[in-house]
Design a protein around this nucleic acid. Structure first.
Lengths: 189, 189
DNA sequence: CCGTTTTACAAACCGACTGTCGGTCTACGA
DNA sequence: TCGTAGACCGACAGTCGGTTTGTAAAACGG
């Protein structure tokens, strides 16, 4: 069970790469399975053998993307002195990372609508959001009862700033604004 | 030109009402024009005479919903003493309003993906977001360079709290968290 | 080493859906 | 009264997601 497994994995990888590009370029709705098949040179049967359907394919793409983001963020915050620095560093790293159109379109725009907000949120929890919540908790600046909510609100706010930049906003200003935003949130009463 | 115009307007209204319900219940993708036709008793030709297509129908639904929200928010903030009170009142009113599944699904979840983030944002600008930005400006707590960004970030954060409540969170806690969140943001350095 | 099972892939096919198009009917203005 | 334009109809075409049946070969078990 080696040659076949490798072939299968290679095929999944190829499809995943192509699908990621197409979903990012055209969005979920305007990306047809047909196109994925054409560009990958695969047959319908092959694709449906590896992925249960279009939605499952999208979910796999999202998972891979989130994993990559998570790894990148871990690298970014490594070596931070305290919790507050880690939080700010991570958030700013995320703002810079998310300039990638793949992330903007797939993770921030399409995912909630395609998978439903629930499943999207569960996925985020395992990656970027999980880190942010832990970092926010470690600062001790937020009362426990609001921790989960404020972590979500902060991430949503940061995500929004990413989309603002994508829409033509200035990156430097956005980073400064995020810095200020986080700073205000962390100040005790 | 009265009977005809009225009939047309009545038809558009009927379709809009039915489409709003269906979009809210099943989401954009899982709502077929076919179903809208069945439930409204209309023919394809009639529907396509009034609306250019499925997306245009969705946009009309969104527009009507946003307009209703805007009107409701105006009512809510009327009589506020100062800018800060108006901002907080408006935000909390929005949190309560948005419990409506129609708003959650159509405005917050599907709209950005269906219309694209740009067009969705342009629409929000004309309604809820415009109000929030003006209120935030009036408080004078946010430097001009960050006003637009912080207004967006705040709205995104509040929207997120709405979705948290929808997911099973506690309404009272969410309102308290939003209150605290806004309060922290408004404090000067 | 041989028969069986499992895996990767292929291709025809199906049902559902969106959008188009020619056409009908009727209110309304000239 | 007659021509026009708007409201509405229904058949049809094209696309798309998903299913089913079939095939070749790799892995497995005795």
């Amino acid at each position: 069970m080696n040659l076949k497994a490798e072939r299968g994995a290679a095929t999944r990888d190829k499809v995943l790469t192509i699908a990621t590009r197409l979903f990012a370029e055209r969005g979920y709705d305007d990306t047809s399975i047909e196109t994925v098949l054409q560009e990958s040179g695969l047959s319908r049967g092959a694709l449906y053998h590896h992925y249960a359907g279009k939605e499952a394919l999208f979910e796999a793409v999202l998972e891979a993307t989130e994993a990559a983001i998570g790894a990148e963020l871990v690298r970014a915050v490594r070596g931070s002195r305290d919790a507050e620095e880690a939080l700010l560093t991570g958030v700013l790293a995320w703002v810079r990372l998310a300039r990638d159109p793949v992330i903007k379109r797939i993770v921030l725009t399409d995912a909630p609508a395609v998978l439903g907000w629930e499943r999207w949120r569960a996925m985020e929890e395992r990656y970027s959001f999980g880190m942010l919540k832990a970092a926010l908790d470690a600062t001790g600046a937020v009362p426990a009862e609001f921790l989960d909510l404020h972590a979500h609100m902060l991430l949503a706010a940061v995500n929004e700033s990413v989309l603002m930049v994508a829409r033509g906003g200035d990156q430097a200003t956005a980073e400064a604004a995020v810095r200020e935003f986080v700073h205000r949130l962390l100040r005790p009463r």
